[in-house]
Amino acid sequence: MEYFTELFFSGLTRGSIYALIALGYTMVYGIIGLINFAHGEIYMIGAFTSFVVATVLSIYGFPLLSIVLLAGLAAAVWSASYGYTVEKIAYRPLRHAPRLSALISAIGMSIFLQNYVLLAQSSEFQPFPELIPDFDFMEPFAHVVGSSDLVILLTTALVMVGLTMLIKFSRIGKAMRATSQDRTMAMLVGIDVNKVISVTFIIGSALAAIGGMLIASHIGQINFFIGFIAGIKAFTAAVLGGIGSIPGAVLGGFVLGLTESFATGYVSSDYEDVFAFTLLVLILIFKPAGLLGREAAEKV
């Protein structure tokens, strides 16, 4: 039973990270129907920003809590500005071009950002400072679930609730929902669609940055390539849950994380990805729109 609990928490931690990144994919897809392949790189840039900020602040001897908050804030802001800029230069000019053009542009952006960080930093793995300390009250459970797992879970939960509130109850949330339903109509009723899209990118990027910081601190290392695999997995989670659906992204993240964890634990880690992607294929066969996705009616 303890083994099951351990695997369960390990799956939840993984799932939370996938979910945080998947939100960015799914929000952007929901609004402009674009798969933003540069999103994994935004996550990586977030991790790097928090790395730089945390390293500098710890040299100046700031207390840990303020380092975490400042590094998180800096990462969110910096990544958000990247997300905003990427949208502005790589996607906006292609807004009315065929979908494929925007997709290629996204892949190009992803490669560009990876190589930019490779050149600006290095290809070496960098040691990421341990931002999440071991809590004393967690010590009796440390062999089952670590303090960083707990922080990751709580942060993800908080972010989810916050995002849901934002989308359900705020003006901009309402505008986002309207834009995602019908962009032209939203424009006609006076919604500044460009602004809504920018905000979507900003929120998605900030979430990815927070995910980047948490996971980097959890595993203790980063390099320029971490965004690629995490991005692919998160994209899978988004599709699994139904791309375009926010609760779907979260659910997809958890399902994927738990599947991987239990597959490793009870079968073999050799087949971790096999299980994850078999699940994806099965879900897409029986529920093509994903777990919580809405079937899009074909417009004739």
Binding site: E6, R14, H143, G146, I219, I229, S269, D270, E272
Partner: peptide, 20 residues
């Protein structure tokens, strides 16, 4: 005797398995 996937975000499941 197991292989892990390089680059995965988390190895805690396989670590639990080693422990068990």
């Amino acid at each position: 005797f197991e292989g892990v996937t390089p680059g995965a975000v988390d190895y805690s499941a396989v670590v639990q398995k080693i422990k068990r």
